[in-house]
Design a binder for these strands. Structure first.
Ligand SMILES: [Mn+2]
Ligand SMILES: [Mn+2]
Ligand SMILES: [Mn+2]
Ligand SMILES: [Mn+2]
Lengths: 219, 219
DNA sequence: ACAAATTTTTAGTTTTGTCTAAATATAATT
DNA sequence: AATTATATTTAGACAAAACTAAAAATTTGT
């Protein structure tokens, strides 16, 4: 499988996890920053290889084989991200670009041993779950901060947008995975929040709050 | 720079370290397991980019820029090989194939941090020197075992042929880097040697002996 | 239901890296 | 020096992955 084929499978997989319906050519093109006509070409090839279901004009979805391949790539991507943060002193906003390259390295032993070296991590630096060797993975019980009721308390466990810009914003404001977050107040006008993170307080826009995942505390 | 361009530069660099003359199209083709016509095409492109000196029918050599690029790739290749052996439990006959992939990953921080994680190794698992960040590297003082005089003692410091077959042969016969080797006898007929490796003895063919590097003991 | 807008596909090009077959230059041999 | 052999380059083709522009199918709006 080529790098390009792998990237398409991964894109289709990620789009499939958002909305559950069939995935459109345009959506894939946008995700991959390419043209719809290129997508059509590639989707045909993936279909020939039995990796996606495809009927023209009807969108695509992954076959079992395609899903397995996509999960393998996601597993590699996230393990490498952990490696970069834990062993090579990368910050969480720097890892994605390099992991995009490393995810294509082909060696089963490499990835199994990397998993061992990292002591079998369950989540990547952005809080996303790392699929196991056989593709199994459990999404964490989490909620967008913006959906939390007033006075609710939770632990920050992930980001929805993992762009460098957003991650650097979080760093600058001392918000990190594992922090306790409490919703102190919600501004009705723009849905911005007044929150407590650990022992400091700040105001965050709705856009910020709707890109932060928290695991609500049991009560 | 593409993977293919990088592979050509590396091949030219390695050929240049054997014989010092201009490197022939055919030699590159053989080294890269491709056709001479493909080499000509690529060499033209590398020449356009100022990475090799090239006049048709006269062979190629690296420019300063080309040499620097080649050294950067060799550095990455060998650091990754150390990583695979030291951190991921690979044996020295398994690392090359994976390093061929990893050497193309682009990230300066990645390779600097990898260097640090490995505690700035000077040599790779096959005894080959690892170029520094600025391309500087010192070839070790070493000699082929086959060239050693009778009764001479040395330390095994490298292999010339690092094919999996040869490396597995060495493993099987308990010959490893760092072992002390003494030449006990030389058979005039076929130049095979009777040697001592640490505390065991064995006979090795001339072909074996001429692919093992030793650092002769001062006397 | 029909026209307009949007989405998707097709057709034809481009770039990169490879190949085969043929032509040309260099090297070796008589 | 001429012939033969070898090495190298050119010419033309191909596959992969992208693109643009145009055609076709689908969806939307009235
Ligand atoms: Mn990522
Ligand atoms: Mn991630
Ligand atoms: Mn190697
Ligand atoms: Mn090596």
């Amino acid at each position: 499988m080529t790098h390009s084929e792998e990237n398409y499978l991964k894109a289709i997989f990620h789009l499939g996890r958002q909305g559950t319906s069939a995935i459109s050519t345009n959506a894939i093109a946008e995700q991959m920053d390419t043209k719809p006509s290129s997508v059509t070409d590639m989707v045909k090839k993936l279909s020939e290889k039995g990796l996606v279901h495809y009927k023209r004009y009807q969108g695509v979805s992954l076959t079992a084989a395609g899903r397995a391949s996509a999960l393998a790539i996601v597993r590699k991507h996230r393990l490498w991200e952990v490696f970069l943060v834990e062993k090579l002193n990368f910050s969480w906003d720097e890892v994605h670009e390099v992991a995009e390259q490393l995810e294509h390295i082909k060696s089963e032993k490499l990835i199994d041993q990397l998993d061992r070296l990292l002591e079998f991590p369950k989540y990547d630096p952005h809080g996303d779950p790392i699929p196991g060797k056989n593709g199994e993975f459990q999404e964490r019980d989490k909620q967008l901060l913006s959906k939390l009721p007033l006075r609710a308390v939770g632990v920050c466990v992930g980001v929805k947008d993992s762009s460098a810009d957003f991650l650097k914003f979080l760093d600058k404001n001392n918000i990190a995975l594992g922090n306790e977050i409490e919703v102190l107040d919600r501004e009705a006008f723009d849905n911005s929040l007044h929150i407590r993170v650990g022992d400091h307080q700040l105001r965050v826009s709705h856009q910020i709050a709707s890109n932060l995942f928290v695991k609500p505390n049991e009560h």
